[in-house]
Structures are given as C-alpha cells and as structure tokens.
Design a protein around this nucleic acid. Structure first.
Lengths: 293, 293
DNA sequence: GTTCCGCATGAATCGATAG
DNA sequence: ACTATCGATTCATGCGGAA
C-alpha cells in the first residue's frame, strides 16, 4: 500500500475547513513563535498570539479523531527581560475550547547554540504540549521503548538508526542485522523528557526541529496508515518523517517557497502524492491555491 | 565568621511577617504541591492553590531584596488524566502582584527510574521558576561554570598553532579567530536545564530534592554571608546546603516533626541555631529578635 | 571505498554602537 | 530619542574533501 502526502499551499485557518471532522490521528506542529521569524511569517505580536491561534486550534479540535492526539511544539520568548505568558494563556484558553491538556513533554536540546548574557543562560529546552479530545486516546508505548541504560538520556537518535536497519531486515525477528548490539539489553519505557540534538544539516533550510522529534511522537501516537497533520508545515519535516514511517500525512504551508521546496523533496524521495485532491475540494472557493502538484 | 541558620516552627504566612522588608538575597523553596502529601500538609486543593499561595508570595515579594531572586520549585500534578493549570495561573497572578517572571529553568531528573501507565510515561522533570523584583538582579554566573566539552581539547591540540597565526594575520574566518579565544579556557557557562539525579538519600520527608539543586541556585544568585530563605523548609535541605556554603539561612516549617528533625541535623552539623525564636513573636515590629549573631 | 578531519551552522539574547 | 545592526558566546552534527 502506498501512503499519501497531501501538501497544501495557503493559510491553514482557511484550508483546515476543507478537512473532514474526526479524520486525523495525530497533529504534530510547531507554529511560528510570537514575533519571531518576522521576515517570513509576518510575526504575530505576543499579546495577539492567543487570539490568533484560537480559531486554528478550534479547527484542529474538529478534525482530530476522538482518540487522536495534538502535539504542539512551542516556547515563549524573552521580552524586555521577562518570559512572556502567552503560552500559558493559550493552554488555559484551549481548555475552555474543549481540549484536554494531557501532558507536557520537554525537548531537552542536546546542542543548543552557545550563549551567555548578563541575566540569562542559553535556553536549551522547548515545550511539547500534548492535547486530547478525550481521556482515552491511542498511545502505542511499546513503539518508543529504549534500551536500559539509555533510558535516562532517551537516546532517540540511536534508536531511530536501528529502527531503520530493522525495517530493511524484515526477517520477523524485529531486530535485523544489528541484533548484536541489543543482545541481553532489556527495553524499557522512556520518560516525558526527549533529549535530542537540534540537528543543523544545511540543505538550504533549517529544519525547525530534528526528524527524531516528530518520529518519536508519530511512533507513540499512530500506527501504519494512520493520518498525520502538520498545519504549519514549514520545511516539511513532519510529513517527510511520516512518509518514511508509512503514515499518510497532510501538510499546510502559507509560504510558496517552503511549499515548493517540500514538493521537490517529496519528489526526490519518491513519495506518493495524492492526485485526487483537486477534485475532492473543487467546490470550495479558490481551490487552485492549495492544489497539489 | 559564623553563619546562622534560623529555623522557625509555624505557618510561613504568619512568620514571614516578622521578617523585615528587603532583607533576603535568595528565596529557594519547594512548596507542598496541590492535593499531594495530604497526610502531612493537609493537602491544598488544586482549585484553591493560587488563592492559598498569593498571600505568601506577597510577603516574599516584600522581604526579598530589590536585586534578590525567588526560585520556586514546583510541578503540577495530574488530576483526572489532565495536567492542572494552577501553576500557570499562579505565574499570571504573581505577575499582577508585581513579580517579574524572569526565567523557567528545568530540572531534568537524571535517574528517575522507568515507569509506565496506560496513558503516560514517567514524569522526569520539574519547573524551577525564577522571579525577580527588578530587571537588574544579582547573578554570579562564573560560580556555576561547567567543564568545557572534550571536542575543544582535540580541536585545540590539532589547530592551535595555525589558528593563532591565522588570527594574528587577520585573514582567517571568524571561526579561526574565535578558536584563539578558547585557548586556555576550561570552563563554560551552563544552560537553563539542570541535569541532576534525584538522590533521595535521606529521609522521612516525601518531597526532598537533591542537595545539588539548591546548591546550584545558591551559587548562582548569592555570595558568601548572603541570606537564603526557605519558607517551606521540609527536611531542611536548602538550609543545610546554605550553611555548608557559608550563607546565612532562614527556614520555616509548619510541622513539628520536620522542625525537630532539622534541628537535630543542624546540631549534628554544628550549625548555629537561634535559641529564642519560639518565644518572641508578640511584637511584630521588633525585627531585632530574629537578628542573629 | 573507507576513515578522518576541518568547518559551517542553528526558533537566542543582551548590550553597545551606529544611523 | 528611537530604531537598527553587530559582536560575543562556544556545542553537536553532518557534509565534503583529503588521506
């Protein structure tokens, strides 16, 4: 079975309306942070951030399956020497919208850019807020087990390498060629701290997050052929990883440059792109804007 | 010079009133978490937590020096499958009180042993919220430097000569120039993630944090002979560490068992305890009564 | 073909300097 | 005065050229 990777060009607030209710298994996204990336996204002011995001989260609540999960990667910036509170206000307002704030994972950045200031050290962590529609949701915990001994550090990078090898082996053992590394090693469950490097591969574009980040949450909250959505696609990391992991995915991006770039990458990687979606959504206004290549 | 460690038995909301304005350099504390440890502290309900804490934080704001710092170790518990929002509400309300929310450090627990529930992994991090009265505050960053990574040594070993030359010739890249700055450097600044083991070596107290935690913040925000306050003393870790580090300290504890236990420990460690503190609370204005040798 | 090694770079922030 | 740009900080990764 081929998986699809549907990518749309346009404002997610509009395009999300075309997505049916209760159709997404996992939403994983990293929206533009307040007042950052001004040159590309126009920069939402921190005091307007909650108001800007709530209509979008309302649509996300609608399209998510009842047992699906929404993972939001975000971090408040420092303004005039203080941490902004818009993320906290957002959590409180999203709960009023009907979301359950189930958990807060931490991404502990292994190699954050060095720095030191008079009042502050390098910020080397970000929030990964987990929201759900119901107390019962799908969680495949066995998929993210780590070798004992590594559990404290959650060496996800290493885990993903072996998983790739395992996929190639396909001999039913589940471990493939690299089995020697794992003999006698007990697998245990990880914690709610994800310890990953920021992964600065050039490629003309900086991925906002490393592939290991969406990979971990896709493993944890979806199975093969499930549907993953990233309404702020950016450089397409979530969709590319989803495709590698045999999940279907939907990505929405407002900037043509990023949209074009992801199209090319997805082509290079010989991924399947759905052809049917122009006709599916034809009746809605301006369908050509988010038409897929 | 001998440092004092004044420990008080009673409710900190009352006892804090005896402490003069602008007299404390660092407040480091871990208050009872909402609805936890019900058997010992009576358990503040989550929906009343903010209301309960605000009068205390108001006193803390008063007693802290203008260039002092308040570090609050806290983590919201899970209630009915959701993370509570009382910590976020508390931050928002404390800002209205006049506090600046300067930073959020993360304590990444190195050795929280693996655990797993149907919808959740082991929680292995806690918040360390930094609050200040002013944008300018004392911060002794050099005191918490960490050893430089190994990569620098191998780099310098191979490149130091050529890079020194290049730097002098001023035709190298910015990178080469910077390398000369690293020569002879051993220690670098840390980040805002504190990676420590939980180390519950003692005691009968259920919420003890490792000594390394107050130690790091005492180093960072105070100098010798400064005054450290823990209004929820518990097993006295903050005060014991402060004394070891030649800081004066004040501790307040509501439960006689803990108060007695800390008294004994502090005696064992040959610390100085004010003898008169239980008897002299009649006169609120008389600040000399808790002034120490 | 494999290993080694130099090197550019990344959701950053503050304070100083320049316009 | 008010905004804009620049320099300093110093870790892990992956790439590409060299050995």
């Amino acid at each position: 079975m081929n998986n699809y990777a549907n990518i749309f060009l346009g404002d997610c607030k509009q395009i999300l309306k075309k997505i049916p209710d209760n159709s997404i298994d996992l939403i994983f996204t990293s929206p533009p942070y307040a007042d950052q990336r001004k040159s590309t996204y126009g920069g939402i002011a921190p005091n307007k951030y909650v108001k800007w995001f709530l209509p979008i989260s309302k649509e996300l609540l609608r399209v998510l399956k009842p047992d699906g999960t929404f993972v939001l990667n975000i971090k408040e910036k420092v303004i005039d020497g203080e941490r902004s509170t818009y993320v906290m206000e957002l959590i409180i307002e999203m709960r009023k919208q009907g979301w359950l704030w189930t958990e807060e994972f931490i991404w502990h950045k292994k190699n954050s850019y060095p720095g030191k200031w008079s009042n502050r050290f390098r910020d080397s962590w970000e929030r990964l807020l987990q929201f759900n529609k119901n107390k019962k949701f799908n969680m495949y915990q066995d998929a993210v087990k780590v070798p004992i001994g590594d559990w404290a550090k959650s060496r996800l990078k290493n885990l993903s390498e072996t998983d790739k090898i395992r996929d190639n082996a396909k001999n039913g053992s589940g471990f493939g060629k690299n089995i020697s590394n794992w003999i006698g090693r007990e697998m245990v469950y990880p914690t709610n701290v994800v310890y990953l490097a920021t992964e600065c591969n050039n490629k003309n574009h900086s991925a906002a997050f490393p592939e290991g980040l969406p990979e971990w949450f896709i493993k944890l909250f979806t199975q093969e052929n499930d549907v993953v959505l990233d309404p702020f696609m950016g450089s397409g990391t979530t969709n590319i990883v989803a495709q590698k992991m045999k999940r279907n995915s939907i990505g929405i991006e407002i900037l043509p440059e990023y949209y074009e770039m992801v199209s090319k990458i997805i082509n290079q990687e010989k991924l399947t792109i759905a052809k049917y979606q122009n006709t599916d959504y034809e009746n809605i206004e301006d369908s050509s804007r988010y038409a897929i290549r």
